[in-house]
Every structure is written in C-alpha cells, then in structure tokens.
Amino acid sequence: MAVGDSYRSVRHALYYATLVAFIALMLFPLYWMLVTSFKPNIEIYRIPPRFFPDSLYLDHYARTLEDGYFVRYLWNNFIVASITTLVNLIAATLAGYSISRYPTRITAVISFGLLSTQMFPVVGIVIALYTLYLRVSMLNTHTGLILVLTATTIPFTTWMLKGFFDELPKSIEDSAFVDGASRLTVLTRIALPLAKPGLLAAGLYSFMLAWNDFLFGLTLISSDKLRTLSVGISLRYLGEVSYDWGQVTTVAVFGTVPMFVLFFLFQRYLVEGLTAGAVKG
C-alpha cells in the first residue's frame, strides 16, 4: 500500500512537472519579448543575457509612442477587425441558420463550396483581387479590406454557428411557429438570443483572424493613413538596413497587449461557443 502511494505521488510530481514545463515553454517567448523591450540596446545583445532586467528601460516605448504612426496602425487594425467581425457575424449567422434549419441540396453545395475556399493559398489570389478592386474603385479603402477579410473568415464562422444552431432544441422554434410567428421572427427573437455564446465565439475567432492579417492589408492598402498593424510593423521596423530588436519587440508588445485584454474578457465564451459549435458540428 505504502509503495503504491509513493509510486503514485512520484507519478503525480512528474505529471505536474511536465505540465509546468510545457506551460513555461509556451510562455517563455512572450516573456522574452517583454523583457527584451525593456532593455537598452547594449543589454539586448549581451550573452549571457539577463533574464530579469534590474531596471526598466523605457526609451523604446517612448520612441514608439512619440512617432505617432504606430498608434494609428493600431487604431486602423482595430477598426478593420471590429467591422469585419460585425459583418461576418451578420452574414455567418444567417448562413449558419439557413444550413442548419432549411437544408436543401443548394445550401449543401454552397456550404461545401464555402469550406473548400479555405484550402486555397491566399497568395494565389492577390493579383486577381487587386485587379477586381481597381475596377470597382475599392483599392485603398478599409471597406475593401473588410470585405475580403470577411470573406476569408465567413466559411469557418458559418460552420461554427451551424453547429451551434443544430444544438438548439428545435421544439422551442416549432411552438413559436404554432403561435403564428414568422420565420424571421423565430430567427431573430428566439434562435438568436439562444445562440449568444456561439456568436461570441465566432466573433472572437473572426476578430483574431482579421487582427492577424498581413497579405491583404499589404496589397489592397497603399496609403499610410489607412495601414494596418502587421504591414505597419513590417514597413517601419523591418527596414532595409537593420533588425532593431529592441524596437521590434516593443511594437510586438503593443500589438499583442490589446488582444490579451480582449481575450481575457471573452475567453470563457469561446470555450462555451466551441463546445456546442465546432465540436459537435
């Protein structure tokens, strides 16, 4: 009995050690980014490195905030990601609900079509997209960028929401029909409120993807006033001549922190939404 106990506690210890080691490994890059951004250049390149800086060096931050561009990139990115999320949610809710509640042969084809677009490389379509946008005068507009980002995220969010609607008991909706409600009322008054966790999850997902965009923002936007984050970083801090790691890690911190905050606020819903959506869908 005693042997079994100690065996179990050793196993437990091992188990926790692995867990902690893995989490530490996952977090270390972010920690390192943070630490680097608070070191003066001469410290940054020192080997052996200092893992806990003894003083906070704030010049990189001051410089980043001073030049003002960066704040604009952040703001643009935020606008683009938010509106993308909104448009995405409207379109994906309708589509997801349609596939779940009114399945026909055509919707089946469409939903497969939607998913298959995920399998084509983005780099393959930028030229065609640029030409299209030029023709309809949508180059260099946030609208254009938002539309294409919406298009790239819709397939997955539709799928997620479809799974979510599948999970909702149909009987509530049926009794509403019996009471004489129209299809639309049922959708907006009954199904939508119930699908709130699913909507939050899908919204968070599309926000992340839009926030992450590089290639579309690069190709479709050429005015500095409208630039988004990743392109802005690449434009200003990955120049021709140097990697200024102090500066790069600083802007990285700036680009990541707003997402951390958002994420902590909504993370709970993501798990909930996915539980019903992607998991069972």
């Binding site: 909104l86 448009v87 409207i90 379109a91 507009t141 609208t143 005015s223």
Partner: peptide, 27 residues
C-alpha cells in the same frame, strides 16, 4: 414580402456598416 423587405434591410445595414469604415479614394 416581409422576407424580401427584411433582406433589403439587412443588406442596407451591411452597407451602412461598411460605409462606416473610413474610406479614402485613390489620389
């Protein structure tokens, strides 16, 4: 008819939302 009206309304909403995204034409 209500369905059609609603669809138009929805598309209009999308349009308005999009127009909210700041625009700047080519020089």
């Amino acid at each position: 008819r209500r369905v059609i009206v609603t669809m138009v309304f929805l598309l209009a909403t999308i349009g308005i939302v999009l127009a909210g995204g700041r625009q700047e034409g080519n020089a």
